[in-house]
Design a binder for these strands. Structure first.
Lengths: 165, 165
DNA sequence: TTTGAAATAAATGCTAG
DNA sequence: CTAGCATTTATTTCAAA
């Protein structure tokens, strides 16, 4: 279920000091860094560091910690972006399709965007044939989908993020 | 530095059994789950579980574990996709621009794609004004960039990934 | 490869500055 | 908010199956 603008516990625009930012940068780099190592790196006592990290979690600044996998090693070496354009922008139609796209096997992220397209679906698949099947069976199958356009992804690189400046 | 097809230690298409897949699914969901909890969840001894996880890391199936942050709480509430089209596809030009885009402040991911566009730059910025400045100062500033098109991102949702089926 | 149990290391709770 | 110390919990190691 998506919510499409229902308000949920949004993190207060917390006031983060240098220590917090250093902690965040370290955990983005290595989310399994031990509290001891983290404390040493940012220059505070271990108990203080643990306190800070807990506060950052509870306030929602740290959303979660997740393993990132090598999708090629898992048999999904092909990445693609499927641009999806809708014929109707009825609220229910949009919400329903969004839910469907998120549930597509191999879907990594789904962006609801404004502009030429409505959704950008980033998928990882086993092969080009599977990509075709995926689009036919899980995307264009819905009447609200007017048109799709697929781009092969040659390479994905992580950006520097928002913490560096 | 990007490599653009120079070969690096790619994970062998490892043979993963059900236990491995269960471990991976759990760690994608919660990368800080304790080894004890993980072992209980997948039904093996703690020492076995630790052994498996270490193997999955060393073989490169688990690439890394990272904290995910609430970018809004960090003052970057606006997301956008900047489609970048190049005028020249000279190898050096492509590689250089790729490196530049990855280093853009606020860049989350940069996709090198085939099709209408060459790069898709996903950024998180402080405001629409900053978005404009970012594009002018860090993207269109390069002569190799022929044209950009920017789409506002309303919402980002995680897909089900490749492990569910 | 898997395991249990011992040894090491880390996180948490409590106290107080 | 911070730090030190004691307690509880987790990870690593290793001999054995």
């Amino acid at each position: 279920m998506s919510e499409l603008s229902s308000k949920k516990p949004q993190a207060a625009p917390a006031s983060l000091d240098g220590t917090d930012l250093a902690i965040l940068a370290a955990l983005v780099e290595d989310g399994r860094m031990t509290n001891a190592a983290l404390a040493a790196r940012v220059g505070v006592a271990e108990s203080t560091c643990a306190y800070r990290v807990r506060a950052l979690r509870q306030s929602g600044v740290i959303v979660s910690v997740n393993a990132r996998l090598n999708l090629g090693a898992l048999g999904h070496p092909i990445h693609a972006i499927v641009k999806v354009r809708l014929g109707s922008h009825n609220r229910e139609h949009v919400r329903n399709l969004y839910d469907k796209l998120v549930a597509v096997p191999g879907a990594l992220t789904v962006l609801h965007v404004g502009g030429d397209d409505d959704f950008l679906l980033h998928v990882a698949v086993e092969s080009p044939e599977k990509l075709r099947d995926l689009i036919l069976e899980h995307v264009t199958i819905y009447p609200v989908v007017q048109r799709t356009e697929t781009q092969l992804v040659f390479e994905v690189r992580e950006g520097r993020g928002v913490l560096s400046p």
